[in-house]
Amino acid sequence: MRFLPILLSAAILAAPASAALKDEAGITEGLIVVGIAYEISRVCPDIDARRLRGLSYLLSLKSAARQMGYSPAEIEAFIDDKAEKRKLEAVARDRLAGMGAVRGDVAGHCAVGRTEVARDTNIGRLLAPR
């Protein structure tokens, strides 16, 4: 299960690994939010991803990292770090399961997605129910 492939590839490209950006909770949390929303839209046939909004959100995370003093190369390296990507995907999967959407459960993903949209959460704002 790959959470972030399309959006991350579109938003930020690759370079050598960064050790510090992974510790920025605001950045990693934002990537987890995007991953959860992407997975919900991928599994639930009744909910689409708001791709432009997702891309805009990812670009805002990149901008925030730049404002924190990270170079473009450091940001790109963090996004390309496969080990970090796997860690974030695991966190996103665990959170999604804790919300009631276990892997392969279409109804659970749809229910979580509709709940997030109704609550107007960061996840919900990245989703568009049909």
Rank of each mutant, 00 (worst) to 15 (best):
K62Q: 14
E89N: 11
P129S: 05
P72I: 00
E76R: 12
L8H: 13
I47N: 03
I40K: 03
D120C: 00
P129M: 03
A118H: 05
R51E: 13
I79E: 03
L127W: 10
I47G: 03
A64I: 02
R93D: 12
V102L: 01
I40L: 02
Y38E: 14
R130N: 07
A97P: 06
S71M: 04
A10V: 07
E39F: 02
C110R: 06
P16N: 09
V43A: 01
R42F: 11
R53V: 14
V43N: 01
A111N: 13
V43L: 01
L127S: 04
A19E: 15
E74R: 07
L13V: 10
G113R: 08
E24W: 06
R93N: 09
L88F: 11
A92Y: 07
E29H: 14
G30D: 05
A49H: 04
A90Q: 14
I40V: 11
E39N: 04
A107M: 04
G30A: 05
R50H: 08
L96V: 01
F3W: 13
A17P: 15
L59Q: 15
I79A: 11
I36D: 01
T121L: 07
A14Y: 10
K62M: 08
F3P: 00
A73T: 10
G69S: 09
E29Y: 09
A90N: 14
D105L: 01
S41K: 02
A20W: 05
G104W: 05
V106C: 01
R114W: 13
A90L: 11
C44G: 02
A11I: 05
K22I: 00
V112D: 11
R103K: 11
D94P: 01
S9F: 12
T28L: 02
K87L: 11
A17K: 10
L55C: 06
V33Q: 09
I32W: 04
T121W: 10
K22W: 04
A101L: 03
R86S: 14
V43Q: 08
I75Y: 06
E39K: 13
I32P: 03
A25P: 10
G113Y: 12
P129C: 02
A19G: 08
K87W: 05
A19K: 13
G26L: 06
A83F: 10
K87G: 00
S9G: 15
F78L: 05
A111K: 15
A37L: 07
T115P: 00
A73E: 15
R114Y: 14
E116R: 10
Q67M: 12
L7S: 08
M68W: 09
G100W: 03
V106L: 07
R125G: 06
L4T: 14
P45T: 03
V43F: 01
A97V: 02
I36G: 04
I79S: 02
S56A: 15
D120L: 09
R95F: 00
A107T: 10
A11G: 11
T115E: 15
R50D: 15
A37T: 03
Y57N: 04
G98E: 09
L55R: 04
R50I: 00
G104D: 12
E24C: 05
